[in-house]
């Protein structure tokens, strides 16, 4: 029963983070929130008795995927604001001012 309640809470957090990741206009915030969705999902996998999958999801879904996104963002010189086509040298420095 305790694990059922934990799964429900984790599901609510996951849905909130997912909606936040789509709604926000900042790509950096979006990437971090989607990493958060994966991290909470790995907690759910662990509660469901799947430690193998939980390890993989925590390492790949929330670790390497985030890094891959950040590298691609820096590589393409995409500004942090998603509607902008401006090229910037450091997307992270735009995060405060763009929105």
């Amino acid at each position: 029963m305790a694990s059922d309640i934990a799964i429900l809470i984790a599901g609510a957090v996951m849905i909130a983070a997912g909606i936040g990741a789509i709604v926000t206009r900042s790509l950096l915030v979006s990437i971090i929130l989607s990493g958060g969705v994966s991290l909470v999902a790995s907690l759910v996998f662990l509660l469901m008795g799947a430690p193998d999958v939980a390890m993989t999801e925590a390492a790949i879904g929330s670790g390497l995927t985030t890094v891959v996104f950040l590298y691609a963002l820096a590589r393409s010189k995409q500004a942090d604001h998603e509607d902008s086509d401006k090229r910037v040298d450091n997307p992270a420095s735009e995060a405060g001012g763009a929105s």
């Binding site: 430690p51 193998d52 939980a54 390890m55 993989t56 390492a59 790949i60 670790g63 390497l64």
Partner: peptide, 14 residues
């Protein structure tokens, strides 16, 4: 134990 080639490979990539 839990874990294996995929997880270990990701740790090496890290």
């Amino acid at each position: 134990t839990p874990g294996g080639g995929f997880q270990g490979g990701v740790v090496i990539a890290t």
